[in-house]
C-alpha cells in the first residue's frame, strides 16, 4: 500500500502562538523525506497531526483521498516514534514489543528480532531500566519493524551515540529499499543525515520555507570564492544568502542556479565555484537578524 498525503492549509495554535500557520504540503508515496527545522519550528506539531495525535485547528489532512483523523483503516498504517522517556514502562522489552506487534498490521517480528540483535538490545530487561540510548534504539526498532506505509521518526536518534546513529541510518536505507514506503525523518542533525533524504522540507516559524528534491536544492545553490571585487561583480543581482570575508578574499553563497555561461565566466576570472550543503542552506535560510555574525 502506498500512501499519498495532502496537507491543505493546516494551522495549529497554542493559545496565541501559531505553531503551524497555513501549511500546505504534498507528500507522494515511497520516498524518504527530511523534515528540517530549528527548535520550535513546528516539526513535532506537524508530525503529531500526521500521526492523528491531534486534529488541526484549521485545514485538512488527507491520505489517499480520505480524511486521516480518526480513520481506523488509515491510522493503523501510520507509525510515529519520537524521543520519549519510557521511564514508567515496567514491562520487559520483549513484552513491550509484543504488545505493539499485536496492533500493527504490517509489523515484522523477524525483522524486529534481527534489529534487536544488531543493536544489542536486552530483551529481558524492564523498559524503564534501559539507558537513554537504548530507549532511543527501542523506539527506532518499533518504527522500522512496523513497516507502516507512513513511518515517522521524530528525532528518535538524538539519544543514540554516533556509531549507533550510523547503524540506524544504514537500516533506514536498506529497509526502505526492501520495502519502499513513505518515511519522514525530522532532524536538526542535517549534515550527517542529508544523504538519506530524497526530498527536503524546511519548516521555519510554523511555515514551509522550502519543499524540493534534495538534488534540486543542491543544484540551486553555489558558493563563489575569490578576490572580493571580482566576487562582488559576479554575484551582483543574485539571491545571496551568506557572505564571508577574509582579507581580500570573499566567499558568497547564492541560491540561484548558475548557467553554463556564468560557469565559464567564473573560470576565466579565476573564481572558485563550490557546492552548498543542505546544512548551509538550512542555517542561512532560517537564521534571524543579528545571529551567526554579519550577513
Amino acid at each position: 500500500m502506498t500512501a499519498d498525503i495532502v496537507i491543505d492549509q493546516v494551522s495549529v495554535k497554542y493559545k496565541k502562538f501559531h505553531a503551524l500557520d497555513r501549511v500546505s504540503l504534498k507528500l507522494d508515496g515511497e520516498k524518504i523525506y527530511g523534515l528540517i527545522g530549528r527548535n520550535g519550528a513546528g516539526k513535532t506539531t506537524l508530525l503529531s497531526l500526521l500521526a492523528s495525535f491531534a486534529k488541526p485547528d484549521e485545514g485538512s489532512i488527507q491520505m489517499n483521498g480520505q480524511p486521516l483523523f480518526e480513520n481506523a483503516e488509515l491510522m493503523q498504517r501510520v507509525t510515529c516514534v519520537y524521543e520519549k522517556a519510557l521511564n514508567d514502562e515496567s514491562e520487559k522489552v520483549k513484552t513491550y514489543l509484543e504488545a505493539i506487534a499485536e496492533y500493527k498490521p504490517d509489523y515484522d517480528t523477524d525483522y524486529a528480532m534481527e534489529l534487536v540483535e544488531l543493536f544489542h538490545l536486552p530483551l529481558n530487561k524492564p523498559v524503564y531500566k534501559l539507558s537513554k540510548g537504548m530507549q532511543s534504539v527501542l523506539n527506532a526498532i518499533i518504527g522500522l519493524a512496523s513497516r507502516s506505509p507512513i513511518t515517522i521518526f521524530d528525532e528518535t536518534y538524538s539519544g543514540m551515540d554516533a556509531p549507533t546513529r550510523e547503524l540506524f541510518y544504514q537500516q533506514v536505507l536498506e529497509d526502505h529499499a526492501r520495502y519502499p514506503r513513505t518515511m519522514i525523518l525530522s532532524t536538526h542533525l542535517v549534515s550527517e543525515m542529508d544523504y538519506l533524504f530524497e526530498e527536503a522540507v524546511i519548516l521555519h516559524k510554523g511555515k514551509v520555507l522550502l519543499h524540493e528534491p534534495v538534488d534540486a536544492v543542491l543544484e540551486k545553490g553555489a558558493s563563489i570564492t575569490g578576490a572580493a571585487e571580482l566576487v562582488d561583480e559576479f554575484v551582483a543581482g543574485m539571491h545571496q544568502i551568506h557572505t564571508q570575508k577574509l582579507g581580500g578574499t570573499k566567499s558568497v553563497m547564492v541560491i540561484d542556479p548558475l548557467t553554463e555561461e556564468q560557469l565559464v565566466r567564473a573560470a576565466q576570472s579565476g573564481l572558485e565555484i563550490g557546492p552548498v550543503s543542505l546544512q548551509d542552506l538550512f542555517i542561512h535560510l532560517t537564521k534571524e537578524e543579528g545571529q551567526h555574525g554579519a550577513k
Binding site: 495525535f53 493503523q76 500493527k104
Partner: peptide, 11 residues
Amino acid sequence: WFVKTGITRKD
C-alpha cells in the same frame, strides 16, 4: 497508548 499505536479514540 492506543492512539500512539494507531488505534482510533472511538475503538
